[in-house]
Design a protein around this nucleic acid. Structure first.
Lengths: 227, 227
DNA sequence: CCTACCGATCGGTAGG
DNA sequence: CCTACCGATCGGTAGG
């Protein structure tokens, strides 16, 4: 029932009835629209999930019309991948910076682990941290090609833990094979995104202390008996 | 454009052209159709996610037509909730049975923890274990009322760990506050659904050993120094 | 449990 | 980046 005869233009729509303020010129095209889409997408993907979030939701969150996100991203999938990649790159940068500090300070393996753990919590639970959780929980929605690309970054992130874990294993402070230790430890830390509440729960420092005490046997076993 | 005038019946459809075999009477209404829907839904929800799974997918997986799942379940949401509830009830039963055995055998707290951990791995990673992972990863898709109902079962499950963790904390073998220890330990174990591969990875017993070694300081600290 | 269908929504696009 | 729109899909239902 498509009609080629359009109704009179006057009946179709008001001339300009939108209430949203016009953009000034310097708000346009400076690249922050793309970033705004990424941030809103990350927040919505995390709260509602990828499939339950519509591109219209994301557009509305940054004051765009429904078709406009596709001016910045080729598809909804591309937007998801961009969120995950940004999350993983920032996580990697954060953890590498921590490792740098640690190396120049000459800390021992136990102190190193503590720094790695705290940095991990900061990436996952710190302010504005929706990007990495999206990656953790929307992995299924990614195409195989995208899996592979992100896998490189993930492997790099996990590799940062190996020297410290190996040293702790060799010294007997960590009584678990390194590979399984890494999986279990990162799992314990990562699962915190499910239950951590910054308003009600402990500080990230307290969390790190608890984790250290859980994973590492007495550094001073027998030397400092419990009082 | 709805028309009240139906085309001649002869033009509408062939008399009976379906190739799928007719059901015998004893396949009907014995309740296993509902169970088949639950199992297929659990498998699909886990592999593709709740939103990405259509009720048509689920129907096809058990050889039904697209509308038929709604004869057994009021809505797609009700199907999801049923999957989660079955998962949680079976997990609870499994863990309670383990606790029963432990109590009658008079095991010490360390041995108790080992039994709890193994039972947890069995629930998550054992054969046919899609129900609990669905609960873990599709929590967002549930209505608040359903959250509350499942929360009762989850609290009961978590409470099973407290006596053992408290005993281990009191004896000094667990050097972390009980609440945080429970969250971190269950997180480490639960995250295994993301990486465990029964074909390539260790056995559930090996996994339990690794976890025990990671969480529990030397039970014989100073008494059995490393050789 | 099947048939036949509906209403709504959604990702995406043409053209400006 | 907006307007106006399309094609496809999906949860759900009436009636048998």
């Amino acid at each position: 029932m498509k009609s080629d005869i359009a109704p009179p233009a006057a009946d179709r729509k008001p001339k300009r009835a939108r209430g949203r303020p016009r953009k000034t010129i310097d708000e346009r095209d400076d690249g922050n629209r793309r970033q705004a889409l990424l941030s809103s997408a990350a927040r919505l993907f995390r709260r509602k999930g990828f499939d339950a979030t519509t591109t219209r939701d994301i557009a509305a969150a940054v004051g765009m019309q429904s078709g406009s996100p596709f001016y910045h991203f080729k598809s909804k999938d591309a937007l998801l991948y961009a969120v995950m990649e940004e999350g993983m790159r920032s996580a990697l940068a954060h953890q590498q910076a921590a490792a740098q500090t640690v190396a120049s300070a000459g800390l021992n393996p136990t102190q190193c682990l503590r720094v790695l753990i705290t940095a991990h919590f900061e990436v996952l639970l710190g302010p504005g941290s929706d990007f990495v959780p999206v990656m953790l929980y929307e992995w299924r929605s990614l195409a195989p090609r995208q899996h592979k690309a992100l896998g490189v970054l993930i492997a790099e992130y996990e590799a940062l833990w190996l020297p410290t874990l190996t040293a702790l294993h060799d010294s007997g402070e960590l009584r678990t094979p390194v590979r399984l230790a890494r999986l279990l430890i990162l799992g314990a830390l990562t699962w915190s995104v499910q239950w951590y509440d910054p308003k009600k729960s402990a500080s990230l420092q307290d969390l790190s202390d608890a984790a250290m005490n859980l994973f590492i046997g007495h550094g001073a076993c027998a030397a400092v008996p419990r009082s």
